[in-house]
């Protein structure tokens, strides 16, 4: 095992897959000469050259659709969108083209593309550099949406994403980029579509993804001192999500909290809550609680009040513990 930061785990995943398959290439703004805005491709330009580490104009729609065309002709692009907010410039490319190309053309073309982007607050970067928009993509048939909570997960999930033949929205979190964690020296993969029980518990299930997984673990640690046992389920892939693991956990705890950094309304937690209500409502002993950011644009000076964290998860767990049907 070795210690590594989340951002370098991303780099290792890309480097190993580029070593393994010459059709894999990285494209995006400042990924080459500059080594990536957050440093995810540091050193890769020197190793693979400008043909495979492709710097682009500031042109998100153009290079994302370009990657789609290249993918349909046999390449396996990794697209880096500098901030998730900028993905709004390429919605046609992702929603109308990439998500539909294989199905719409009767399976003639496959589009093996990974679109990486960091979301979330933590930099006091304000309304247009802090958003969490994963629910938009989870709502579009044809895309897979992956979110990694720690260095071990980000490496294993990204390697699997690069090998997957479906288009994938791969979401990082800016505050996690510096996070340190332990990973094996040898190669490993983490399957997409499978959730991971990050902490076992018996009283309440918290279903989460990305940074809020770590916040939920902190909340669980604190709550254990108060005699409350929390199970933390990390979805890892929010589309398609692992119903079996989530439902099995709820059948054990009979209480559910869903937690994400995105605004609470219409977030992915709403889909989990709705599916649980639809299919296993009789397993619940109390109302479902949701944790998410308030329904306003991300705040600059008030960011610390805006971004949800362990304290919010703790409150939600206590709230569901106080209620019962």
């Amino acid at each position: 095992m070795k210690d590594i930061r989340y951002i370098f785990a991303i780099k290792e995943a890309m480097e190993e897959e580029m070593d393994r398959d010459e059709n894999v290439f990285l494209i995006g703004e400042d990924v080459g000469l500059a080594g990536g805005s957050f440093g995810a491709s540091k050193g890769l330009y020197e190793k693979f050259g400008p043909e495979r580490i492709v710097d682009t104009p500031i042109s998100e729609l153009g290079f994302t659709s370009l990657a789609a065309g290249a993918a349909s002709c046999g390449l396996r692009p990794i697209v880096e969108i500098m901030f998730m907010d900028f993905v709004t410039c390429c919605m046609d490319s992702i929603v109308n083209q990439i998500a539909k190309m294989r199905y719409m053309f009767g399976n003639q073309y496959t589009v093996p593309i990974v679109i990486r982007m960091p979301e979330g607050g933590g930099l006091n970067a304000g309304p247009q550099h802090s958003q969490c928009l994963e629910a938009w993509f989870a709502h579009v048939p044809g895309l897979k949406v992956v979110m990694a909570a720690n260095p071990y997960d980000v490496k294993g999930l990204l390697k699997s994403a690069i090998r997957d033949d479906n288009p994938i929205i791969f979401i990082e979190n800016k505050t996690l980029h510096a996070m340190k964690g332990s990973i094996p020296e040898e190669e490993y993969l983490i399957p997409l579509g499978k959730a991971d029980v990050k902490r076992e518990g018996t009283d309440v299930t918290v279903v989460s993804a990305s940074r809020l997984v770590n916040e939920s673990i902190k909340a669980a640690d604190a709550l254990s001192k108060e005699g409350i046992s929390v199970e933390v389920v990390d979805l890892r892939t929010i589309q398609p999500w692992d119903r079996e693991t989530v439902f099995t956990s709820i059948a054990k705890t009979h209480r559910l909290v869903v937690a994400h950094e995105a605004v609470k309304q219409f977030g992915f937690g709403a889909e989990i809550a709705a599916a649980v209500a639809e299919e296993i409502l009789d397993e619940l002993d109390a109302p479902i609680m949701r944790v998410g950011a308030p329904f306003v644009p991300a705040s600059y000076s008030l960011e610390k009040y805006y971004v949800p964290g362990a304290e919010d998860v703790k409150k939600a767990v206590l709230a569901t513990m106080e209620r019962s049907f």
Partner: peptide
């Protein structure tokens, strides 16, 4: 959305202009 991969017909497109960068991606490939 007529397409025929075997003859390099990448597909018609219902979104005006959207095929232009996709075709450019084929040229990149």
């Amino acid at each position: 959305h007529l397409a025929d991969k075997s003859r390099g017909i990448m597909g018609a497109n219902g979104i005006v202009g959207a095929g232009i960068p996709i075709a450019t991606g084929a040229a990149f490939a």
